[in-house]
Simulated assay, not measured.
Amino acid sequence: MKKILALSILVSAAFALHSQSLIGSQLKSKEAIILYLIEQEKVAHDLYRVLDTMWVTDVFNRVSNEELQHMAKLSAVAGEFMIDVPVHFNEYPEGQFVDGKLRRLYTDLLLAANFSLEEAYRACANLEERKMLDLKAALKQPNFEIETLTYKALLIGAEDNLKLFIRELLNINTGYTPVWLSTSEYEALTKNILPNDGWRNTDHNAKSQSRISLF
């Protein structure tokens, strides 16, 4: 019970960093928005890479590779507007970030994901919801076509990843409660999700069941 309560507090703290998207409120310039979204994709990539070393499932490896593609797409958009993407976005070791809020988010989610494979899927689903919130906020800003098309494509990718993690939770006979989506949005997005739908690795044993805890 104490472990469950601690986990709940950790996840709540991670997503209480800002109750709504920073985009449009604190992040208003095109440069600030694009650079934030690039580093947010790095958070997802780095988190999924670490989780791939912890659990025997192909899920994390697949989505981590997708996040690299997302970073590349956003960097291409930045290039179109002559926005200099700091080289450290690509050269920083995994788990290191420029934005303090994203750095805290990564740490909190990784800690939550260390409890069990179930909580790893749950933390990742939370992150994909967070990405959806920010991408929707970015789409409301004055954008050129290349931005709109890129943000819409990444939003579809985040939705697909969210559904993937929810499906994996169903496969281990547990559910998911959305953090950012409304009930109607969540039901519309997930109404056709079934356990064992699509590709998956059925071996859910931890790669490191006897590992020393990360924290």
Rank of each mutant, 00 (worst) to 15 (best):
L105P: 00
V77C: 02
E39P: 01
E31L: 08
K131H: 08
I83F: 05
I166R: 07
N196H: 09
S208V: 13
E118F: 02
E31D: 14
E39R: 03
L135V: 00
E129S: 05
V56H: 10
A112R: 04
L170E: 04
D58W: 03
P142R: 13
L22A: 04
L189W: 08
D58Y: 11
I212W: 02
Y151A: 00
R211P: 01
L154M: 05
S64R: 13
N114E: 15
F165A: 08
I9H: 08
R130W: 04
E168P: 00
L117W: 07
P93G: 11
S210N: 12
E80H: 09
E147Q: 14
L155Q: 03
T107F: 09
A153R: 06
A113G: 09
V56T: 11
S64A: 15
I156T: 07
K30V: 13
M82G: 09
L170H: 02
S19Q: 09
M1C: 05
T107N: 14
K73L: 10
F215G: 12
D99C: 00
C124M: 08
D84N: 14
L7I: 03
L27P: 01
I193S: 09
E145R: 11
L10V: 15
L105T: 01
E94R: 07
Q26W: 03
K101L: 14
A13L: 12
M1V: 10
K2S: 11
E159S: 14
D203Q: 07
P195V: 10
L35S: 03
E145S: 13
V50A: 11
V179W: 05
D58M: 10
A44Q: 04
L139E: 10
L17C: 07
A137E: 05
V59L: 08
N192V: 05
M1A: 11
G95M: 09
N173D: 15
R62H: 10
Q69E: 15
D52T: 10
L194D: 07
Y176Q: 06
T190G: 03
L10D: 02
I23G: 00
E145Q: 12
L133G: 01
E185F: 03
K191F: 07
A125G: 10
S208T: 15
L162T: 00
W55F: 11
K152Q: 13
E145M: 11
W199A: 15
Y36I: 04
E91Q: 15
F89H: 11
D108M: 14
Y186W: 14
